[in-house]
Design a protein around this nucleic acid. Structure first.
Length: 858
RNA sequence: GGGCCCGUGGUCUAGCUGGUUAUGACAUCGCCCUUACACGGCGGGGAUCACGCGUUCAAAUCGCGUCGGGCCCA
């Protein structure tokens, strides 16, 4: 038998298994008769590196995937890459010092693809090192034609179904990125701006208006007042004159106008903010676009045209001050919409864009069919759905994204949407194979591309075999994701799946929290609280990081990265290793009939199996790992192994074989229970024990061993004897002069001898010592429901009674109490007694352990 | 301004469909090198479960309010 090192060499073991495991055992089997379990895994954005937050998310997924596989499911744990989008474009522009328009489209796209491929390679390495059981036969890469053909087909189908349309509509616009963005991509930040008070000439005198955006003066299409506002009632229906630009706009009445803000008169521009859009639509106002796609003022801004928003603001304020149009200014805290990517303030422009219809009712109903873990996360989705005002703008004026498969006829302007069989294609590279209805065969390609969420929101469909497989596997079983993308990825996926197939995308959605740094803040490089998974792989290994993820608490909670958790995880691994090292020479599958102590251990093991199964079924990974640790460390190592050591060291006999067999069963089962959370150490031990991989084994089932109270009693007596020695300063291996154990259970003494290091006698019954009841402990659990409001009185009376008297009555089967003259009978279970054992002989110590009594000769 | 989550020993955390002595980890104190493990063993100390009111025989757990922290949205 080869040497087993004293310390568990996690690095050597983990690296060995990473390079020798055969990934094909994790492949989804499309032909299998087993029940399917498809996980709609997040396709990460391949920029930068795999970070701790990813690791947390993927640990959850891997726990579930491995567990379900062992439970006999045909599991699919696919891995996608959400490649397209602005961050990669921006990175390419940085690296090559170019802008997207300085190189041909195809060239720019190629540079983006190259950068993405490199990132995917890095992610692959980290993921393998973390021990993820990914099904690489189901990898998808959204920038590849094999995937984006699906995105394009989904576009075409939704267009034909009337769920996608093209229209002039206000959109959020990022002037820096030069593209439209969706609301989900707008974030808000509080900034101090200036509220400018200015005078608009009216028929009689002036109307005073307060605005934060004087640079939009040329876009003013109306002013509005509250109809209840006495001050301005006379102006309603009349016009006022826009200063500087000298044209008239109507004065509208709208109850939304806040009479207490500014002067109570608001300028409506197209468009300063979302509220302007609402008013513009409601009152059917004209459009005056003063800002263009580059964030510069248009020609309607007269002298300011061609200037940026900031320049205009400065200049126009000065001009209006000079002419005494602006008569007052004050600072104001205001929330500004920013582009999520580059933090540039967004503008709202009216643009001809492509939109996906949003039906809030349908999304809410579909979300109700999904199991949300934890449930309150569904509220976040509902809040978002309720706040949606416009349809989803899906066209982007960028390059690195899925092309919109559309052309416009040069002759008649007719929109030509590609047929599904023509796909995949890029209209800027390919002409349609048909002529337009008008006979013209010249087309203008659609240069806009699709929002990246159009790619990733069909991930569930794509992995389940849509659109080509006849045996489409929808709905999938699980969507794991973070709570930060509920309003985007979860929302869009539900929307698209419902629109395309009319069903829910998943049976359940499991939300993980964010990984926080040790200081409790979100991990970021700028806060210097950033830990890379690779660091942990080096110092403590992947299993330790996985245990941290499991220990983090209930799903959905943000969890802090803590080195002490990693250290604790490593210690547990070392403990398991020591257990294995000790047990290895003894473990064997033999015929020994289990004794009382063995049966106790096996019953505890059954309890662990049942608990772990229920925890895993409910995604309570923290409870699972805690239960495993408690069993391995306390039950198995500190109690069972200490008890059976003497038997194992002794010569071959039935009792020894029973212990050998029990030890084998316990460790073999433990490995299978640990396999989803600690795949490396479990494999290391299991493989050495059986020669097989633990990852193709089944999840343990209880053996059906009934708990034997005698085994538990022996374990407790052993603990009491160890304590007895410890308290008297005796070495734990020093012999006690002699022990007699009294119990009605007929206790086996074989293991007590090893603990006492002396002869142990077991007798039935009670010893000749006085057992004196000294206190009565009322059992509220029983008394409360039985006697309700009387229970408080009963407790008082019980505590005033002689404990010996109560003990006597309890033994008799009924405790009589007198409550204010009323005689009440209590069941024996209503009280427990605290018993003090008094030594009768002079040379004996008496230990009361449960129902057993131990006499220790002095 | 609205919604959601959270506030438990020094630190982090479990429990929260109400019912013995409130879970675990780390830290801390005492004793112990007992032939798997000192990254160990045995034992101990440490919590008015944020605060207030209420419901109840009984509240960390349910309700209302206050304060504090976080997230999402306007």
């Amino acid at each position: 038998m080869s040497e087993v090192s004293k310390e568990y060499n996690f690095k050597q073991a983990e690296e060995k298994w990473v390079s020798s495991w055969d990934d094909s055992v994790y492949y989804f089997d499309w032909e299998s008769k087993k029940p399917q379990y498809i996980i709609d895994t997040p396709p990460p954005y391949p920029t930068g590196n795999f970070h701790i937050g990813n690791a947390l998310n993927w640990c959850y997924i891997d726990f579930v995937a491995r567990y379900k596989r062992m439970q006999g499911y045909n599991v699919m744990f696919p891995q996608g890459w959400d490649c397209h989008g602005l961050p990669t474009e921006v990175k390419v522009e940085e690296i090559y010092h170019i802008t997207k328009n300085q190189v041909p489209r195809e060239e720019f796209r190629r540079l983006c693809e190259k950068l993405t491929e490199e990132a995917i390679e890095r992610f692959h390495k980290s993921m393998a090192r973390l021990g993820l059981s990914i099904d690489w036969s189901n990898e998808y890469i959204t920038m590849k034609p094999e995937y984006y053909v699906k995105t394009q087909r989904s576009f075409v189908q939704m267009y034909r179904n009337g769920q996608i349309y093209r229209e002039d509509h206000p959109v959020n616009w990022c002037p820096r990125c030069g593209t439209a963005i969706a609301f989900a991509e707008v974030e808000y930040d509080s900034r101090t701006t200036t509220l400018n008070y200015m005078r608009f000439p009216a028929d009689e005198g002036f109307v005073e208006i307060a605005t934060t955006r004087p640079e939009l003066l040329a876009a003013c299409v109306a002013v509005a007042v509250n109809p209840e506002d006495e001050r301005y009632r006379k102006y309603i229906g009349k016009t006022v004159r826009v200063p500087l630009f000298e044209y008239d706009v109507p004065v509208l009445a709208d109850p939304v106008v806040d009479t207490k803000f500014g002067t109570g008169v608001v300028m409506i521009c197209t468009f300063g903010d979302k509220q302007d859009v609402r008013w513009w639509m409601e009152h059917r106002l004209p459009l005056r676009q003063a800002i263009d796609r580059n964030g510069l003022l248009t020609k309607i801004a007269g002298p300011y045209s061609g200037l940026s928003v900031d320049e205009t603001k400065k200049k126009i304020i000065q001009d209006m001050k000079d002419r005494e149009i602006i008569f007052r200014q004050e600072p104001l805290e205001q929330n500004v919409g920013l582009c999520w990517r580059c933090k540039t303030p967004i503008e709202i422009l009216s643009e001809r864009q492509w939109f996906v219809k949003i039906n809030p009712e349908e999304i809410r109903k579909t979300a109700d069919e999904i199991l949300w873990i934890p449930p309150h996360m569904q509220v976040r989705l509902n809040n978002w759905v309720d706040s949606v005002e416009w349809d989803w703008c899906i066209s982007r004026q960028r390059i690195f994204a899925t092309p919109i498969p559309v052309w416009y006829c040069k002759g008649c302007g007719e929109v030509l949407v590609a047929e599904e069989e023509w796909l995949p294609l890029d209209p800027t590279q390919t002409n349609p194979p048909v002529k337009c209805k008008c006979g013209c065969d010249e087309f203008i390609p659609e240069k806009d591309v699709l929002d990246t969420w159009m790619d990733s929101s069909i991930s569930a469909l794509a992995v389940a075999g849509w659109p080509d497989r006849k045996d489409l596997r929808m709905p999938t079983q699980l969507r794991p994701q973070g709570h930060d993308i509920i309003r985007t990825w979860a929302f869009y996926t539900i929307l698209r799946c419902k629109s395309l197939l009319g069903i829910r995308p998943w049976d359940a959605i499991l939300i993980n929290g964010m990984a926080l740094g040790e200081d409790g803040h979100k991990m970021s490089k700028s806060l210097n609280n950033f830990i890379r998974p690779e660091e942990v792989f080096e110092t403590n290994g992947a299993d330790a990081l996985r245990q941290w993820a499991a220990m983090g608490g209930s799903p959905g909670n943000d969890i802090m990265f803590q080195w002490k958790e990693i250290t604790a995880a490593s210690r547990f691994q070392q403990k398991l290793w020591s257990i294995f090292r000790f047990a290895r020479p003894f473990m064997a599958k033999t015929d020994g009939r289990p004794g009382q102590v063995d049966r106790w251990l096996l019953a505890e093991l059954d309890r662990l199996v049942l608990a772990a199964t229920s925890f895993m079924d409910n995604f309570q990974f923290d409870e699972t790992i805690k239960a495993i640790r408690a069993f391995a460390w306390e039950t198995l190592a500190d109690n069972y192994i200490e008890l059976v050591k003497a038997r194992l060291y002794g010569p071959d006999c039935a009792e020894k074989r029973a212990a050998q067999n029990t030890l084998y069963t316990a460790i073999e089962t433990l490995c299978r229970l640990m396999a989803p959370i600690m795949p490396f150490l479990s494999e290391e031990i299991y493989h050495s024990l059986t020669g097989e991989s633990v990852h193709v084994q089944s999840w343990p089932k209880p053996l059906g061993v009934a708990a034997d109270p005698a085994g538990l009693a022996v374990k407790e007596i052993a603990a009491a004897l160890r304590r007895y020695k410890s308290e008297r300063g005796m070495a734990l291996n020093s012999p006690l002069p002699g022990i007699v154990v009294y119990s009605d259970l007929g206790l086996e003494t074989v293991d007590l001898r090893g603990v006492a290091n002396s002869h142990v006698e077991s007798r039935i019954g009670k010893p000749e010592v006085e057992m004196k009841p000294v206190a009565v402990k009322p059992q509220m659990k029983i008394l409360g429901p039985m006697f309700k409001d009387k229970s408080r009185r009963i407790i008082k009376i019980l505590s005033s009674m002689d404990p010996a008297e109560v003990a006597g009555q309890k033994a008799y089967g009924c405790i009589k109490v007198d409550v204010d003259g009323e005689a009440i009978d209590l069941p024996p279970a209503a009280v427990e007694l605290v018993v003090e054992t008094l030594s009768a002989g002079e040379a004996v110590d008496v230990l009361g352990v449960g129902d057993a009594t131990v006499l220790v000769r002095k």
